[in-house]
Design a protein around this nucleic acid. Structure first.
Lengths: 283, 283
DNA sequence: CGGTTTTACGGAACACGTAACCATG
DNA sequence: CATGGTTACGTGTTCCGTAAAACCG
């Protein structure tokens, strides 16, 4: 199967309409129609049921859509990584969301820079939940992921640290003076809605900047990893949540990577995190 | 990047010789040479350093070789799975090595057959360490893997059970009467060399049949998971190894799979394993 | 009829093979 | 000088776009 054919099929399967798919691909409908027919002939399988008014996926089509998307991103990833590896200045690209390093990164970068095999590290800040995509498609070599929110499947990972959660509140909130709270104390509060989560009816937010702004305005409160307290606005307070989730910070990279600079970076990050945990436990 | 180009590159990168690579691909050298040039031009990266006597990989070439191999197998996997999904009789293919189910599979199959959404399950017996390949390339939907020997990275997995190891001996071996042994007791013994392991100087073996035969002949002894005792030849004995590794049996499947019959099978396997563990713990 | 997919046809691009060429050990 | 990669050139396939036809609500 040629990757071009597969990309064509994925476009049609996503649009469920040959015309729109062709427009998206920048070609005319007829070649697209023929390409799909040829693909079906070669596979010996019907992928799409079409009437002249409706296109739908067969079971085989659904399978090829899911698995094919993965195959295409893997292919693009290979291409991007090879391109990057060919650049004259070797470098690592690390992607994280704002605050997604639990305050570890600065120290990791400093320490890594002292390493004999160190290369330049480009830190790329992305939106929430975008890390995986950049790592999968080869734009980045390393990503900071947060369990259980992010999905590390398909990557090699190393656990850096595990944190309790805190609830972030306006200074004059009824719970602001508490030493700690339980989740049950938060019943009835308005919690923000992160873009992908359906439940709860609070305001829709996309990043922590928006959340903190809304908290400061008294429109919501949020349960976040403890490390947010490192850079919290002065007008907000954080109270530990006794029975909150444990969130784990991971550093993730492509399983295929055999790069020595990358391995060194991961090792450094793990060492710094281990030291950090020791300090926290002691303090 | 077209998958054909990538396959050409991988062939050259593996052979480090355009002529042999062309022969392997079933084409003439010149088109291959041009295809590689075109790929390099399109990526804007030099992948191979060639003199007329020697071909070697650049850094970018190494990256593309590793990542590209993965991309190609993912592509083939998508193709195989789509083909299989298009067949009239839906079925699951489970791959394992002989004895690789720790005696669980029969019960799992029986119980799964009673499930309302059950489909036919084809059990495929492969050589040692071949499971991953068949799962990766889409030939199988499910595999039984054994930690730490097999590598489950890139798959979704569910732990079934964890076993101690036993040492398998000829009946009149000096240790055969022991209730248990330690690894240090085995110092000086000749251990078999599994195909991929370099150390140890014992006989090279490929499957448990060969191993048991050699043990019966007094040529070697072997440390294996406890479950081998379920089907051990009468002329051999097994002695628990106190400080042996713990080996974990996993059931693994493609992360992309969204198939309900597959999910049901995994659930059934986990349930049966849990019950089994309960029995063992009690007994 | 209206919107959508498929068939028909002509042209351009691409990939292949043979043969000649060139470079290095 | 021989082994092995590259360039040159002619041929066949494939892929595309336009135009016309078939299909279904």
């Amino acid at each position: 199967m040629e990757s071009r054919e597969l990309a064509y099929f994925v476009a049609v399967a996503e649009e469920l309409n040959f015309g729109r798919a062709a427009a998206r691909l920048g070609i005319a409908q007829p070649p697209l129609s023929r390409a799909i027919q040829q693909l079906e002939r070669r596979l010996g399988v019907t992928l799409l049921e079409r009437t002249s008014r409706q296109v739908s996926l067969t079971t085989a089509g659904e399978v090829l859509l899911h698995e094919g998307r993965k195959a295409l991103t893997t292919l693009e990833s290979a291409e991007r990584r090879a391109k990057r590896a060919g650049r004259v200045d070797p470098r690592l690209v690390l992607v994280m969301k704002p605050g997604g390093d639990a305050g570890l990164l600065e120290q990791v970068l400093d320490r890594y820079a002292e390493h004999p095999e160190a290369v330049e590290v480009e830190v790329m800040i992305c939106g929430i939940g975008e890390q995986e995509g950049f790592l999968r498609d080869g734009t980045a070599d390393l990503a900071m992921l947060r369990l259980p929110h992010d999905d590390p499947s398909g990557f090699a990972t190393e656990e850096l640290l595990t944190e309790r959660e805190v609830v972030v509140l306006q200074r004059n909130h009824r719970l602001a003076g508490r030493k700690s709270v339980r989740m049950s104390d938060l019943a009835g509060e308005i919690l923000p809605r992160w873009t992908d989560e359906c439940p709860s009816s609070g305001p829709v937010v996309r990043d922590t900047g928006q959340v903190t702004q809304l908290i400061a305005l008294g429109r919501t409160i949020a349960v976040l990893p403890q490390s947010v307290t490192l850079h919290l606005r002065r007008d907000l307070v954080a109270v530990p949540v006794i029975d909150g989730h444990l969130t784990t910070l991971l550093i993730a990279w492509s399983e295929e990577s055999r790069s020595r600079p990358l391995a060194a970076f991961v090792r450094t990050a793990a060492e710094v995190a281990a030291a950090h945990t020791g300090v926290e436990a002691a303090g």
